[in-house]
């Protein structure tokens, strides 16, 4: 009976692996590394999530969707905790998540987060971003900001595809 009302954590993680990100539905909240911790606390399931960007409107939708998904699996007591520290970085996107992003047409982050400061960045050449469609690195940035806070707009000079780049933070 207990395993029915308190499914084990790996089962819960796999259920959460089916909850899509509302802005980028090709990847799940697990793929993005938004779920920081899952644990049972005196019969209550506590899920700690972290925002990608502090103003990202998707964060509250994600909390609602996680709760709904877990309730649909029969878990009645769910508490969503918002955790700020350590701050989310693109390094938390799983290798599987990166592949899914690329297959969906979004170039995954090309750098390790926490790299050069802006003062250093100004002096160097930005990294080459590969076109998710034709894989050419002959691409250019159209804008530092794209359709959501986490993305920038790029265009491929070879196949002319405009595409989103999941920028590195």
């Amino acid at each position: 009976m207990d395993s029915l009302t308190h499914p084990d954590l790996s089962q819960i993680r796999s259920w959460l692996g089916e909850v899509p990100d509302p802005e980028v539905p090709a990847v799940s909240v697990m793929d993005l590394g938004i779920v920081r911790e899952v644990q049972w606390e005196e019969g209550e399931l506590v899920v700690a999530i972290t925002p990608t960007y502090s103003g990202c409107p998707a964060t509250s939708v994600i909390a609602i969707e996680i709760e709904a998904a877990l309730r649909a699996k029969g878990i009645e007591r769910v508490r969503i905790e918002r955790r700020l520290s350590p701050p989310w970085t693109t390094d938390w996107i799983t290798p599987e998540g990166r592949q899914k992003l690329e297959a969906y047409g979004i170039a995954p982050p090309a750098e390790i987060a926490g790299g050069p400061s802006p003062f250093e960045r100004f002096l160097r050449k930005p990294p080459a971003i590969a076109c998710p469609r034709c894989k050419s690195v002959n691409t250019h940035r159209v804008s530092e900001f794209g359709s959501t806070p986490c993305k920038a707009q790029y265009q491929c000079r070879d196949c002319l595809e405009p595409f989103d780049y999941f920028k590195c933070i």
Binding site: P51, Y53, S54, L84, S85, P87, T89, A113, S117, P118, R121, E144, F145, P149, K167, I169
Partner: peptide
């Protein structure tokens, strides 16, 4: 958290 955004 904010620093990452402000860098951009």
């Amino acid at each position: 958290k904010s620093l990452k955004e402000v860098t951009y």
